[in-house]
Design a binder for these strands. Structure first.
Length: 284
DNA sequence: CACCATGTTCCTTG
DNA sequence: CCAAGGAACATGGT
């Protein structure tokens, strides 16, 4: 469930549920997701620690905790990969098949499940440290975009997925932002004009902010039985009613009419990822 | 069986 | 140094 808006919604829901809670025990079912932290170290560090805060940086979740006998706060870094979820569950509810990490919080369990195990749950904070500016933050300006893209001939769609350029844009919102800005995904980064980059800057912020706003209206139930964080992310079950995909204008809409001009939406592959666009509204 | 999938990272080739 | 393409990771859906 992974781009910036989905992570932001998860953080908002999870933060009040974990703050002040103390980790009694840690079960590592999939050691690969904690890499490069060792299992022993994770358990020793987290046992007895209390959640102080939870925030987001790009697509990463950043938990901070107080540990007994330590002055500095500990940072615990989460990343959902392609299929990760985090939620609280009662101790009696059955564990999901792909539970990777289970934290015993006393009354509840906090579960990190991840079908494909591409996600992370680690003490290593080098991931978020390497990120570019937050797209919804003050540092992300049209001027920044101009300077950051100047040196690259790479296609803009590919460059938007570069987390060191801007943090948090993924494959879905990259296509959506370019459509809204009326820019071809094939356009070379260093050939975009100032008006184009101004539009792209605004489109990125709008697309992400709208998604967060709309995601905020979805009721999530983290602690109920059989609870999931469902309903919001692309392809989730609650999406049967089209809640999520309805507001995506081009992504996964191959052959469907463009919402602006009715030209059929096209798909092609860039950097091994699908790109969707309207050939009329986003001319090369 | 085939192809696709919200992400990241590594490797090769130019 | 950079760009582009591919594969890998691992599992499931259609």
């Amino acid at each position: 469930m992974p781009e910036l808006p989905e992570v932001e919604i998860l953080v908002r829901h999870l933060a009040p549920l974990v703050k002040g809670k103390t980790i009694r025990d840690v079960e590592v079912r999939r050691p690969r997701v904690i890499r490069p932290t060792a299992e022993r170290e994770l358990r020793q560090t987290l046992r007895g620690a209390t959640f102080a805060n939870l925030s987001r940086r790009g697509k990463y979740l950043v938990f901070t905790l107080h540990a007994p006998k330590r002055t500095e706060l500990i940072s615990l870094i989460g990343h959902l990969g392609m299929t990760g979820r985090m939620f609280l569950a009662g101790k009696k509810s059955p564990l999901p098949k792909h539970a990777a990490i289970i934290l015993d919080l006393g009354k509840h369990l906090m579960i990190f499940e991840d079908t494909r195990y591409f996600g992370r749950f680690t003490l290593d904070s080098s991931g978020p440290a390497a990120l570019g500016p937050e797209p919804l933050g003050k540092e992300f300006t049209p001027t920044y975009l101009v300077a950051a893209l100047k040196r690259y001939t790479q296609a803009i769609k590919v460059k938007l997925l570069d987390q060191t350029l801007v943090a948090g844009i993924g494959n879905i919102y990259a296509s959506e932002a370019l459509f809204r800005a009326g820019i071809s995904p094939r356009a070379k980064s260093n050939q975009l004009t100032l008006p184009q980059l101004t539009r792209l800057h605004r489109a990125i912020r709008e697309v992400l902010a709208r998604a967060i706003r709309q995601g905020s209206t979805v009721p999530l139930d983290f602690a109920g039985d059989g609870a999931r964080d469902g309903l919001f992310y692309y392809g989730s079950k609650g999406d049967a009613n089209g809640f999520y995909s309805e507001r995506l204008l081009v992504y996964d809409r191959l052959g469907q009419p463009c919402p602006k001009c009715r030209t059929p939406i096209r798909r092609f592959v860039q950097a091994a990822r699908s790109t969707y666009y309207c050939p009329a509204c986003q001319p090369t």
